[in-house]
Write a protein that binds this DNA or RNA. Structure first.
Lengths: 235, 235
DNA sequence: CAGTGGTCTAGACCACTGG
DNA sequence: CAGTGGTCTAGACCACTGG
């Protein structure tokens, strides 16, 4: 069960990133110096670095060096961006308002999604504002057994997604995307005009095979679009 | 501008996959035999194969061999979904009706998307049926200089996407997703009830840096959801 | 047993960067 | 100029598979 050398080197680098010894923008040691440090050949050190480049943790510039990437892999894992991060990137203010926080015995659809028939489930409803405009309504159900302290968090300070990631790293997600007409409740809380649809994004997230959370995210169609860029030339 | 050897080998393998010379499940030549065929070292052949494994086109089993993967793993919700394939997978019949086919000088937004100011552009409008239910309206603009024979195709037999892929392999895509209320034209052709929204998916596809096509895909919300599954346990 | 992929080495030449 | 990453070679040993 001895780890291959390139994985040992990769783990070492990962550790420096995780405890922030090497911060974003930092130039990491060159292939040659890593190879020397670990008594490996340059190709082996290179393999370790390439692994992390593929994971979007590092960035290389020929003739210059290898650098720690600014962006965390976490949000790219999620494909659909973290709303808080997205708003901050636009240099706008992100603010959350908690509409409700409760414990319930879920109905069939949700207990099925969370695979927890008749066992208690937490529910929160949160509106996300970009400056003073509501831009997302989040309706989230969380497995109460697996994330006992969920309701104790202050969701005006930390997003539910951030909290859940810190407790149980996401390993799987099933996502569904629909266009729907908003309910009166949605329309009011998202301050929507008449006859305007919403994007409804539903997601079940799992950690190590166990369903952690089921969430419905509603975006007003008149002020929100989902975008993505795909590049298949490299990778 | 000579391509590195490993990319040449990767392109060769890709070509066999794309014209289905090597079908799903097929065992491709070993590293050693590819290396011999291209007068390269084993490490170089290996690099080519690894590239394609990372792209989920091939799969390796130690001591056994390298095989063509069955499903192109779709990881992103916004990844290119082939409607024809999707319907066929459900064992339903896929049928296309061409509403219009024409050449035009595009307006600003579209010429901007295709980066072809004031030069001729092809446009087709096609309705996709699942059995007898319309499920997608496709409104596609194509760069006429780059794909001269586009309008000559019979789009009841081949999808525009299939044709374009055969002419110019897709390397980049920008996608936007919105919820919209359908125009009268859309409502009629998708046979939609009143007050029902659509999902509108817009995409610019590029091949080697050149914009090939701009497409709007409309899905009636009452009978279509986009779904995706993401698994991040490996990588 | 021969064949396969996984790992690894100790070299090499290249184009390019930045001082 | 020294340093960097990108590519490449011709070997090597390993664990494992399948006939």
């Amino acid at each position: 069960m001895t780890l291959p050398k390139y994985k040992v080197i990769a783990q070492y680098i990962r550790a420096q990133l995780e405890n922030s010894t090497w911060q974003a923008g930092f130039q990491i040691p060159s292939e040659i110096s890593l190879a020397n440090q670990f008594f490996a050949s340059r190709m082996t050190a290179r393999k370790a670095i390439e692994k992390l480049v593929n994971q979007d943790l590092l960035e290389r510039t020929p003739s210059v060096g290898t650098f720690v990437k600014a962006h965390k892999a976490q949000s790219s894992i999620l494909e659909i961006k973290n709303i808080a991060e997205e708003i901050t990137l636009r240099q706008n203010q992100h603010r959350m308002v908690v509409l409700s926080k409760l414990t319930l015995i879920p109905n069939n659809a949700i207990s099925f999604a969370l695979s927890t028939p008749n066992s208690p489930t937490y529910k929160v409803v949160i509106v996300h504002y970009e400056n003073d405009t509501p831009i997302q309504l989040e309706e989230r159900y969380v497995n109460a057994d697996l994330v006992k302290n969920f309701l104790k968090q202050d969701f005006t300070k930390i997003t539910s997604h951030e909290y859940l990631s810190s407790v149980a790293p996401l390993t799987e997600a099933d996502t569904t995307l629909e266009a729907v007409m908003p309910s009166e409740f949605l329309k009011k809380n998202l301050q929507m005009p008449d006859y305007t649809p919403c994007i409804k994004l539903s997601r079940i997230t799992k950690s190590n095979g166990q369903a952690i959370s089921f969430v419905n995210l509603y975006y007003p169609a008149d002020r929100y679009k989902l975008t993505s860029h795909i590049n298949v030339t490299d990778s």
